[in-house]
Amino acid sequence: MADMFLEKFRSLVPKYLEDKWNEADGLNAEELAEGLAQSGVSIPFVLEEFYLAVGNNEDFTEAYHFFFDPEELEIDGEYLLFLEDEEEKYVWGFKTSQLSVPDPIVYRRNNSKGTWTSEEGTFSEFTFDMFSWVFEELAAELDD
């Protein structure tokens, strides 16, 4: 499959960090394959390209929310978990039945209730919206 999202994820670096993207920002294919082998899960194409683009850049993988490293990915019931908020109130995932979809819908679980809710957007939509919010929050904090 051709790179559908790779350049868009790479463009996050200059947009929010005012720096050029470089290979060190992302995982290489071997690192990603090793991590996925450890976790034993398959991931949607969009998440693979996210890791290849910015999977090593903590400004993205640990900005208010924490993206699981490939070796930390896990299946919980009917969902593949990939993200958790800093207070561990919520976790985000994909339905395992949708892992073959290139850019599946994201779901959020309220950890205290155990209930899942659709974010009503795909991973790419959700991620770009989340980073927009995160970096706007950071800019506002720096202005205070």
Rank of each mutant, 00 (worst) to 15 (best):
A2K: 13
F5S: 04
F9D: 04
S11H: 00
K15S: 09
L17Q: 11
E18L: 14
K20P: 00
K20L: 10
K20T: 15
W21I: 05
N22H: 05
N22T: 09
E23T: 05
E23R: 08
D25P: 01
G26Y: 00
N28G: 08
A29N: 12
A33S: 15
E34K: 14
E34G: 07
G35T: 13
L36D: 04
L36C: 08
I43A: 07
I43M: 05
V46L: 05
L47A: 06
L52D: 01
G55K: 06
N56T: 07
N56M: 02
T61M: 05
T61L: 04
E62H: 02
A63E: 08
F67K: 02
F68W: 11
D69N: 03
D69L: 09
I75A: 09
D76Q: 11
Y79V: 13
L80M: 12
L81S: 14
L81F: 12
E84P: 03
D85Q: 01
E86D: 08
Y90A: 10
Y90T: 14
W92D: 15
G93I: 11
G93M: 03
F94M: 11
S97N: 11
S97E: 15
L99Y: 07
V101N: 02
P102F: 11
I105S: 11
R108W: 10
N110G: 03
K113H: 08
T117Y: 10
S118G: 06
E119W: 07
E119G: 10
G121L: 09
T122P: 00
F123D: 01
F123Q: 05
S124V: 14
S124A: 09
E125G: 06
D129H: 13
D129A: 13
M130H: 08
E136M: 11
E137C: 10
A139R: 15
D143F: 09
D144G: 10
D144V: 12
D144M: 13
D144K: 12
